[in-house]
Amino acid sequence: MSIGNSPEDERPFEDGRSSDGHEEEARPSVGRALQQARIAAGLTVDDVSSATRVRIAIVHAIEADDFTPCGGDVYARGHIRTLAKAVHTDPAPLLARYDDDHGGRPAPTPAAPLFEAERIRPERRGPNWTAAMVAAIVAVVGFVGFTAFKGGDSDSDAASQVTQGASPSASKPAAPKPSTTTATPKSDPSDSAIAAAPQDKVTVQVSAVDGRSWISAKDHNGRMLFDGLLKKGESKTFQDSSKVNLILGDAGAIQLYVNGKKIEDDFQPGAVERLTYTKGDPEVG
């Protein structure tokens, strides 16, 4: 039986004093506030761990204001948000208190330059057929005017013929224009997006469908495949011979496809998930 299975055992002292006899602060700490909210909701630590998929040891540590097992401020804030929702309390004041106690809100992961480099890459443009056509028409008009002035009426007919013959040739370069504007529509992620995943490898596609999320992906040797911010609408595909390890900073914003199959896990918004997939999945390794 894990510690905290009985909410009544953890109720605060009625006289407002802690177990050592000292008066508690009027404003409870983050861990104390979460513990009081859990007890008020009639939940045990086991109940909260089962509902949030946060390990029992981490729940106990957070309620004791020890955030070291969380693995960093980003994960700690995610756990606070998840636990607060599970015990039916507003996470915003708790996150603000945590930021005050730990030096402010953490800066975003500096992964945006990876995507910025792709956006600022100059596009390859085709020839400017409009300018060429205008230049050809100006040349023809100048030639006709010069011929009409030089040769009178007899040369005007010839100039007209030149004008009529030159116009189609000048407009020919416009023919490739439709091909330059043709674009392949971007399709949404689906089961068929990686349906042809090879059987001898594990293939994982991560798509940010409901918002942005920081993600980390490693192969079976621990080599980093990706570490950065995945913006809404973007996706990444990772492949390894035997295993792919994932960390999702905001699992609720992510949709996963493993070995060509959609993962139906109901990840909670703001929840931090550590996942491992192998060739035999979509069962989580």
Rank of each mutant, 00 (worst) to 15 (best):
A51G: 07
N259C: 01
I194G: 04
V162G: 06
T109K: 03
V258E: 09
T276A: 11
I254L: 12
A107H: 10
T237F: 07
G151M: 05
A196P: 01
T184A: 12
N5L: 06
T147P: 00
V144H: 02
L95D: 09
V54C: 04
P108G: 06
H88V: 15
H22G: 09
T237N: 00
D46T: 14
S6I: 14
K201H: 12
P93L: 00
G228M: 05
A37E: 08
A183G: 05
A132D: 12
A107Q: 15
D281F: 00
T44H: 00
D99L: 02
A159V: 03
G151E: 07
R53W: 09
A136M: 06
I56T: 10
D240I: 05
I215P: 14
R17G: 01
G21F: 04
T182G: 04
R125M: 10
L43W: 01
T278N: 15
T203S: 15
K177A: 13
R38G: 01
G151I: 11
R32G: 04
K279H: 01
D157I: 12
L248D: 12
S241Y: 03
V258T: 13
D65F: 06
G270D: 01
F143M: 13
Q205F: 08
Q161H: 09
Q161M: 13
A193L: 08
S241H: 12
E283A: 15
V141M: 14
K85R: 15
T89A: 07
P106L: 07
A196N: 13
I263Q: 15
A175T: 13
R105G: 03
D100L: 02
D66W: 03
D9F: 00
D66E: 04
A136R: 12
P69V: 00
S216P: 07
